[in-house]
Design a protein around this nucleic acid. Structure first.
Lengths: 343, 343
DNA sequence: CGTTTATTCCGAAACGTTTCGGATGCCGCG
DNA sequence: CGCGGCATCCGAAACGTTTCGGAATAAACG
């Protein structure tokens, strides 16, 4: 292994100068900078991370702890995220550490031991919750982190999010504008901030239209096909006062809704209308549904990059204001919505 | 942050003794060992990884580089693997680093920069190929690694594998024993060692039964539902000399085979027989197929643990012979096989 | 010519750990 | 009493890097 000392000997320079040349600090002539870089390449020099970290206090490693063990449905989503981040961090010269906690470990204690191990420079948090002890802990430790999503009302840390209130609102409006007034919403579990934001949007749209929200129309749970199917069936079984519009939290849920609708021989959009949010997973495409479903959409894949960039920014001392972003999903109109006909 | 020096001052001992006490080296009395441990807990001492690594040359981090960017179908498989390993490595006190390479990066160069960065103690390799440059490289560097699967004829490194020759052989025998002689095999891509091993088993069983292998019956490709469907259709289109038995490499392929068979109004097992290998992914269960499919089976989830253990073993100097294992999949008989009737 | 200033360099200390070689004290043995 | 052996301890060096404070040289200025 080549060390700085080897290089300095090879070049007839001091270790100091070689170090400065390599890290691009001033105080070194163009001439030597060039010579050093050539020699470094020649001798295949790689700085020793541990030595560097020992003195700088930085490890060059960032981490992610998966929220819960991935079940099949979530695996694709998480992989998408994880691989996007790994790639982007690599571009910043950062290594990426993945930790999936044992079922038994209490959530914060994982974080506690991870930060106190000193192995990490920063963390990324997925699926923030409305009262999130992990965020509270990391803030109390002044440990750098970035979150995918955010806590409300205000978040004083780096984050990347989509406007989920907008998602809930627009999806609901899409139906209200066609005269629908009995609108079911199959949302993620409420404790997740993004689900609660969508819920707010849903309720606001209802209120604006003077519609009294019916509790039985709002359901939250893990967003699987089964969830969509079961809840739709549940609502259709009581013949009177069925919903005429359905909002699904993601494509999987939409699949379930469609299946249930088919089972009850209800046609979309002639009998009922359906809208959904599309997280643009590679394998399921709301455009290929029959009929194609009107949706808001935002790519989960696209969020991996900014998240990585923000954490990198935070580590290099960028001010938080520059490290917060919320993007507004676009709305794509397709064939699953029609004016309400009460049936 | 508490350091060894702090502890030694606090205890009136030398740094040396404190270090030895903590790492359980002999040469220190029970009495002091206890005192040191108490003090360490009290002052919340955490050894500085970088310092330790600088002198020992160990980082306590092991890594995995994903073979190719995960497409949807593989995501669940990879997540399963990754999370299992992360958990098991954690139990050994090892951190787990994940690298997913950019599409552009040439495969070995990823490994080269990873090992020469010095950030890792060891690597795990997935999906070995028959001529695998990664394995060659790591061996040339004497860098510790473990592989899921193995290269033939002999592998002089730690590995965990299932007996894939056996899988190919038994699956074929299951059909031959019922009188089938035209047997199609939809295998993974040949360059993967496990696929080529299964192929050998398939050919051996054929040969033993005096059946001349027909090239058009053996197809290899990425094991998706689409692959199984397309290849089955292709074989059924030419009416004469259709296969009477089908072997699918995994449940996804089986799904495709079943779908194609249905399309041609062929019934399992009355018209044709089907067998498959079951990698026991959580979401698809060959037992719930209609009819339930006879298969060999081995859990991918179950392999994450031994793989981690073996790498850990390799790092702690265990001899390779103790770090090699191949398990024999079990055979589960269900309803998808019947005696051959030529149709 | 003497003094300042800019440029380029260097020595040495420091980061927190492990470990080698030796030191100290004590006991039992011949 | 002297000596070997054992148990327990310690000082100091080493790992490879960054960085602080200053030194050396040359150019610029009055």
């Amino acid at each position: 292994m080549t060390t700085l000392k080897d290089l300095s000997r090879h070049l007839g320079l001091s270790v100091t100068q070689v170090s400065r040349a390599i890290n691009g600090h001033g105080d070194v002539s163009e001439e030597t900078k060039r010579r050093v870089q050539d020699a470094a390449k020649l001798l295949n020099y790689r700085p020793n991370v541990s030595a560097r970290r020992l003195v700088t206090g930085r490890s060059g490693i960032v981490g992610l702890v998966l929220p819960g063990v991935p079940r099949y449905a979530e695996a694709a989503f998480q992989m998408q995220m994880v691989s996007g981040m790994s790639k982007q961090f690599a571009r910043h010269g950062l290594h990426f550490m993945l930790h999936v906690p044992d079922e038994s470990e209490p959530p914060v204690s994982v974080y506690r031991s991870l930060v106190s191990s000193g192995a990490l420079d920063g963390l990324v948090l997925l699926e923030p919750m409305v009262k999130d002890p992990r965020i509270a802990f990391l803030k109390s430790q002044k440990f750098p982190f970035v979150v995918h999503g955010r806590t409300y009302p205000q978040a004083d840390y780096p984050y990347f999010d989509i406007d989920n209130e907008y998602v809930g609102y627009q999806l609901t409006r899409l139906l209200i504008d066609q005269g629908h007034r009995r609108i079911a919403f199959f949302n993620h579990v409420n404790r997740l901030t993004f689900a609660s934001a969508r819920r707010r949007g849903y309720l606001r749209a209802l209120k604006e239209a003077g519609i009294k929200p019916e509790p039985r129309f709002y359901r939250s749970g893990v967003s699987t096909e089964g969830f969509g199917l079961r809840e739709t069936v549940r609502l259709l079984e009581q013949k009177n006062q069925r919903p005429t519009g359905f909002i699904a939290g993601n494509p999987a849920v939409t699949k379930g809704v469609y299946a249930a609708l088919r089972a009850f021989e209800l046609s979309v959009p002639d009998d009922v209308s359906v809208v959904a949010h599309d997280d643009m997973m590679p394998d399921v495409n709301l455009a290929t549904f029959e009929p194609a479903v009107t949706s808001t959409r935002s790519s989960v894949e696209g969020s991996a990059e900014p998240i990585s960039d923000f954490l990198f920014g935070a580590l290099s001392g960028q001010p938080v204001e520059e490290l917060q972003k919320v993007v507004t999903p676009e709305i794509v109109l397709r064939e699953s919505v029609a004016p309400c006909v009460d049936y």
